[in-house]
Design a protein around this nucleic acid. Structure first.
Lengths: 186, 186
DNA sequence: GGTCTCATGTAAATAGTTACATGATTTC
DNA sequence: GAAATCATGTAACTATTTACATGAGACC
């Protein structure tokens, strides 16, 4: 069976994360949740098996090291083969996302919805994205500050700006469709 | 085990599609690919089993009918319980999408990428969204024409505008980050 | 003593894609 | 007669989430 459009993506995020610094599985999960969650997520149920597979194939190396509180943990670092594989993957064209926007789906069938449901949908969307925008803005300030010294910062900022622009666009779209749909009622 | 954030979504798209008119499984697949593909996709491997399950639970009814070319096919229509279930689902808050943007992921790790890879990534993104925008624009013209007579049209237009605004935003973002990243090189 | 965070991992279930099998009819 | 479209369905695989199990140390 031919592989899917872009397979093993969990493994590539892990390899990418390990190009930044060696980390434990738990730290990788924290990093994803805290830094790239707005465009990529992974659960521990994916991370730990992927780490085992990557190590077995020689892409990463794990060594036991006591944590800050004396817990046992395994710190993984990138091996040359892992870095090579990751760079090759980076040069490949990015697979287009397969969208699954539940809010658009519910909006699409709005003619079938109980009264008020669509207005509420838009309100929820707006509230969620307003909160998101505030979170992005503090990240943006922090990132712009490290633009000079951190070679990763321009790329991280570029991606973050994508999140900011997306969120701003959703907010403007909420206003636009509210007007469109209310005009239609009369 | 507790259900996922928003389970059985394939079944709900099918119920929603059948609120528009009775259709065969094949037609439902065509409809999704042709009309709502920019925010939702389903494969036949999902559609046919879901139809069987929905029928077994009394949400839809299928009857054999010869197709335009004499093929055997089953036309499904919504039953009262199906419409009720769909309306209840519509009133529920929409689950936020779990994002998986490969292009953002590759951009994020741009410092590790071979020379030119990031520029190419942005070029591909731009080309894809330029084509997408052109496709949307002809859909928009058509939809605006039926705004008066079709009660679904305002909602369909609202969703389509989301696609248009998203695509315009990506195009502007491509220019923005190209400037940002090239300024960083010096 | 209870809760939170750190830490690793497995099991079960759901979700979803792709490939394949089959067969009719239409179009070139 | 080959290719495309209509039409239904299954099998295999990949992906992914959630729940659970376990245990240590930190904080209240």
């Amino acid at each position: 069976m031919k592989p899917a459009a872009s397979p093993r993506r969990t493994e590539y995020v892990i390899l990418g994360t390990l190009t930044l610094r060696p980390m434990s599985g738990y730290e990788i999960g924290r990093f994803i949740r805290g830094t790239i969650a707005h465009f990529w997520r992974e659960s521990f149920g994916q991370i730990y098996p992927a780490l085992a597979s990557l190590e077995a194939r020689g892409f990463i190396a794990g060594r036991q090291e006591p944590g800050a509180r004396g817990q046992r943990r395994t710190i993984y670092s990138l091996r040359p083969a892992g870095r090579r594989a990751f760079r090759e993957w980076l040069a490949l064209p990015a697979a287009p996302p397969i969208p699954r926007y539940e809010h658009s789906l519910k909006l699409f069938f709005g003619a079938e919805a109980p009264p008020g449901a669509t207005a509420q949908l838009i309100d929820e969307l707006r509230a969620r994205h307003r909160a998101q925008l505030a979170a992005y803005q503090s990240m943006e300030t922090r990132l712009r500050g490290s633009l000079e010294r951190d070679p990763h910062a321009p790329f991280h900022l570029a991606v973050l700006l994508g999140g900011v622009r997306y969120t701003e666009m959703v907010l403007a779209w909420c206003d636009e469709i509210e007007t469109l749909l209310s005009r239609q009622e009369d």
